[in-house]
């Protein structure tokens, strides 16, 4: 597998406080990888180590075949960075900012084309400091892209955005995917990771607590499906066929909930049983666990522990 980023046993300590507690990560060429976790999980520390801004306490890190701690200008030429917080260059217009940054790289992209790619064509002549929050973030994207990098780091790119600005930022990221860029994204928004990422690693209190695709994260694909229904008054739960009775429990509003790991077979048993008795189950509902529930169950215990 063609790994763009490879991390083994990464540890970062500040004094006695362990912010990153030995994590492993692999990011493949051309994918959007999300590092998901609550605030204080160690996401920004991790991404800043990968960007070469912070030194690690222990572990092996390789980004584009180099150690970011010692890599030089030739390596930075291949990497684009959108910082969590950075304001525009004071006193320069959007186009001037991009012209300045284009001069830093060996083979920059076309300036106007890059402005168009992030949707700032109408603002090309405006001072960066006069842009709205969402527009500033587009300028950040453009500055990260202007060197035509292979790999782009996005550290919480939509934190504090209203829903429409977030959608717009997501569209820009989707555009980067079409350019074939590898993207390393950190976020504490589950829907952002689910919407954008090919693979997600969940970080909580400095530990990797889960990894997978949005479909398989946390064993979501193998988790019990909740089948709920309300039995008529004259039928009791213990009247259900033996294979089902042991899986059921009381649900809200007098309903019955059946936690099934093989929902198709169990639905068939339930249906055959009900039809043979002439019963109808009008509020029958079959629900897969939402990613949000999976995420909360993964991060909740650790993050409550983390609170001081």
């Amino acid at each position: 597998m063609d790994n763009i980023i490879s991390v083994r046993g990464l540890v970062k300590r500040y004094g006695r406080r362990e912010v990153v507690a030995g994590i492993d990560l692999q990011v493949r060429r051309g994918e959007i990888f999300a590092l998901l976790g609550p605030n204080g999980a160690g996401k920004t520390t991790t991404v800043e180590i990968l960007e070469g801004f912070r030194r690690r306490t222990a572990g092996e890190v390789s980004v584009l075949g180099n150690d970011p701690d010692t890599a030089g200008g030739a390596w930075r030429d291949r990497v684009g960075v959108v910082l969590q917080e950075s304001q525009p260059e004071p006193g320069l217009s959007v186009r001037e900012c991009l012209a300045l940054y284009a001069g830093f790289y060996r083979a920059p992209r076309d300036i106007d084309e890059t402005i168009a790619l992030v949707g700032l064509t109408g603002k090309a002549g405006a001072l960066g400091t006069r842009l709205s929050g969402g527009q500033r973030r587009r300028l950040d994207f453009a500055l990260a892209l202007i060197g035509d990098p292979e790999l782009i780091f996005l550290d919480e790119p939509t934190t504090g955005f209203d829903p429409s600005a977030r959608r717009a930022a997501w569209e820009v990221v989707a555009g980067l995917r079409r350019l074939g860029k590898t993207i390393f994204l950190t976020t504490h928004y589950l829907d952002e990771a689910e919407h954008l990422a090919d693979r997600i690693t969940v970080l909580s209190a400095g530990h990797v607590v889960a990894e997978g695709t949005p479909r398989t994260l946390g064993g979501r694909d193998r988790m019990a499906t909740a089948i709920s229904f309300t039995l008529p008054a004259h039928v009791q739960a213990h009247d259900l066929p033996p294979g089902l009775g042991t899986l059921t429990g009381p649900g809200p509003g007098g309903s019955t909930v059946l936690h099934s790991e093989s929902p198709l077979a169990h639905l068939r048993m339930l249906g055959d049983w009900a039809l043979s008795r002439g019963l109808d189950l009008p509020d029958l509902d079959v629900r897969r666990p939402a990613l949000e529930e999976v995420y909360l169950s993964l991060t909740a215990p650790a993050s409550t522990k983390d609170q001081r």
Partner: peptide, 21 residues
Amino acid sequence: ASVTAQRERGVLKRRRATPVP
């Protein structure tokens, strides 16, 4: 004044993320 502002606003950090010496 200007270097402190550039540093605190993340402008220096973003420049540092580029290949500029």
